[in-house]
Design a protein around this nucleic acid. Structure first.
Length: 648
RNA sequence: GCCGAUGUAGCUCAGCUGGUAGAGCAACGCAUUCGUAAUGCGUGGGUCGGGGGUUCGAGUCCCUUCAUCGGCACCA
């Protein structure tokens, strides 16, 4: 029998018989290691303790102390343990797949009766029993025919479909613990007892389509989370509670920003407070775009279907458009219009109005464009995913040669905006040509190269998303990370030679002939609705002063200070600050509590002392200390702080 | 759109197996002028998401519809 050499992390090299398993290697080193081992790394690959090693390799043993492999195995094994528990409780349940995901795993089942949240406790109890049984995990490689036969006998049709989807040159691996069996590529733990029994939790049940295909049956999915230690699980649950406290729907109510109601699902009723944020953000964007060479336009809400037919939207998105039919006097049939789902076709109309020259390019056209899309009911989510929204939309009409410099310019613009809004962590995705596409390979090469070049020139890096581009051109997507680590895709830049073609946009070139411009669709915030939702959650409602709806509340401590309160409010208002008086007959404790809960950034408390000294007592949100200062100094300080970042 | 859950006063929520709706906060009134996260007492307030049905009787049971929430699918 041939020998192989394993190189250990400390540099030691030991020889073993070919086909040795990591379990045997661990046992050859120390019995304690053999017991603690959960898996191995073989030439960097995550290796089951039972898989044979047939060639020389770099080798190390993983234990529960090794974070990444431990978490992967714990979560993966829990997926199997949960599936086993479910089949023990409800033997007629069919199993499908159960991958590791995020902080845990999920497993999809086919079962006539849906699971209820109450079932989760029962399943958890059986899972703990399985863990405590410490059943050894066993694995074998099977032939395709045997495996299919096995699952036919077992009545597990989904597994058969999975087998048929696995590439023919790939081994089929079966795993067992106890009597229970599953098809799985592995690796797994040595025995079920290696899973910490107190560091997992089943979180929720949900429907999910088989293979993610909405034309396939809907399965019952159970989600769980798992960690190495009980404390990690507790920390995770605390994190979820924190995230729930930041929920923009909850804060929107508490801060009286907006509401939504049944008569207008997916559309926002902005209250004065919320609209103040919206307006401050829009004013800021308007100034920024002007400074960046954009011309601002505005286009109609209700547009005849002819334009949507010409643009191609009618054909592709008719189902998602709000249709407006009008009985026009004398007309034989109804006039059919659609609320605009996007602004680009209208912008092309403005471009087409009058003759354009190459000297007009690049032409940067911006609109705070209100759009309406009939989103599927299940997609709606607070003000983040709505049916009526306003994009900070823009279209750059340019030549092919100008794509790169325009893209670069936009990336720098966007970078400045994100920094001003407090987002310093963000990344760029480059989506390239999809399978179904129009245009020549040369034009795709050129456009993808231009976007990649622009990113590099702007001093950033990008991640490629193969085949994720639009059918007409590649795109950049800008993903920002918020204060609690969640990603949000906001900005976008798309290269589009198609729409100018369809809507017959042209300009006169230096040669005197007519040419097609390229259109760059771009947005920085995406939609105001969604972005404000993100801002609220990012700041947990505690917005920077320039965006805060109510910047200062001036509260009286005694009614003798009422006149002075009004004087202070007047001084603040004159300095451009959003200030309100609170002279209600309430204790200062009560007022401080109420305005703090409403996330007012600055509370001034005025009593006899302040009146006498012409000072103010300042309390900042999130700070229990107070400071006393002169009225003029305070006004100057707040006015400076409340200046939008582009004007500071 | 699909699966599941939820919908009771302005807000947060209670209301067991059907017997004529309740709390806290908020609002309003009165008293209190009280120095940095809830002053006390009192008063008013709900066709229990909409529609239909079963029943002597429905917030409670059934059907249907709308909306919201958690996922899935979707996101030009």
């Amino acid at each position: 029998m041939s020998q192989i050499s394993l190189t250990f992390p400390d540099g030691n090299v030991r020889d073993y018989a070919a086909g040795v398993t990591p379990a045997e290697v661990a046992a050859s080193i120390a019995p304690s290691l053999a017991k603690a081992a959960i898996s191995a790394q073989v030439n960097g690959a995550h290796w089951d303790l039972q898989w044979p090693i047939t060639a020389d390799a770099n080798f190390s043993i993983n234990t529960l102390k090794d974070d990444a492999p431990a978490l992967e195995l714990i979560r993966h094994d829990l997926a199997h343990i949960m599936a086993r528990a479910v089949q023990e409780l409800w033997p007629d349940t069919k199993v499908t797949i159960g991958p590791v995901r995020d902080y845990g795993w999920f497993y999809d089942f086919d079962r006539a009766e849906p699971f209820t949240p109450d079932d989760l406790g029962a399943i958890e109890a059986v899972m703990k029993k399985i863990i405590n049984a410490r059943d050894p995990v066993r694995t074998e490689v099977w032939s395709r025919a045997d495996a299919i036969k096995f699952y036919e006998d077992a009545g597990e049709p989904y597994k058969i479909e999975l087998i048929n989807r696995i590439p023919a040159d790939q081994d089929l691996r079966m795993y067992w613990h106890g009597e229970w069996q599953d098809l799985c590529r592995g690796p797994h733990l040595q025995n079920t007892g290696q899973v910490p029994a107190d560091a997992f939790k089943l979180t929720h049940v949900a429907g999910a389509y088989w293979l993610g295909d909405s034309s396939r049956p809907m399965l019952q999915r159970i989600y769980g989370v798992a960690f190495r230690k009980r404390d990690d699980l507790k920390a995770h649950m605390t994190m979820l509670e924190e995230a729930a406290k930041r929920d923009h729907r909850k804060l929107g109510k508490e801060m009286d920003l907006f509401h939504m109601q049944e008569e207008a699902p997916g559309q926002v009723f902005w209250h004065p407070n919320g609209w103040t944020i919206y307006a401050a953000l829009q004013d800021y964007m308007r100034r920024k775009q002007r400074a960046n060479g954009y011309v601002e336009v505005n286009t109609p809400q209700v547009v005849n279907r002819k334009l949507w037919e010409a643009s191609g939207h009618w054909e592709n998105y008719r189902e998602n458009m709000f249709i407006v039919e009008v009985d026009e006097e004398g007309a034989r049939e109804k006039v059919v219009n659609a609320l605009k789902p996007m602004n680009c076709p209208c912008h092309v109309q403005i471009f087409n109005h009058g003759l354009k020259s190459y000297r007009d390019l690049p032409l940067r056209m911006a609109e705070f464009g209100s759009c309406a899309r009939y989103e599927p009911s299940g997609a709606l989510h607070g003000i983040m995913r709505v049916r009526g929204f306003t994009q900070d939309d823009g279209h750059i009409f340019c030549t092919e040669e100008q794509i790169e410099s325009e893209a670069r310019d936009f990336i720098e613009f966007l970078s400045g905006v994100y920094a001003d809004l407090g987002f310093t962590k963000w990344r760029i995705k480059l989506s390239t040509r999809p399978e179904k596409r129009i245009g020549t390979e040369e034009s795709w090469d050129f456009a993808e190269g231009a976007l990649a070049g622009a990113v590099t020139a702007a001093g950033h890096t990008y991640e490629i998303f193969e085949g994720e581009g639009a059918f007409y051109g590649p795109k950049l997507e800008f993903v920002l990370t918020d204060a609690i680590g969640r990603d949000w895709q906001c900005g976008t830049l798309q290269v589009d030679p198609n729409l100018p073609e369809r809507l017959d946009a042209e300009y006169v070139g230096p040669d005197g002939a007519k040419h097609r411009p390229i259109m760059l669709h771009r947005a920085t915030l995406g939609s105001f609705e969604r972005f404000i939702g993100i801002l609220i959650e990012d700041h947990a409602g505690k917005l920077p002063l320039w965006l805060a709806p109510q910047q200062v509340v001036v509260a009286s401590i005694v009614s003798d200070a009422d006149d002075y309160v009004y004087e202070v409010v007047a001084a603040l208002t004159k300095a451009g600050l959003r200030a309100e008086a609170d002279i209600r007959n309430e204790k200062i404790n009560y007022k401080v509590r109420e305005h703090s809960l409403a996330k007012v950034p600055v509370i001034l408390a005025l009593g006899a002392r302040e009146v006498a000294e012409r000072t103010v007592s300042v309390r900042r949100l999130g700070d229990t200390r107070t400071a006393s200062m002169g009225l003029e100094d305070l006004v100057a300080e707040l006015a400076a702080e409340a200046t939008p970042p582009d004007l500071a």
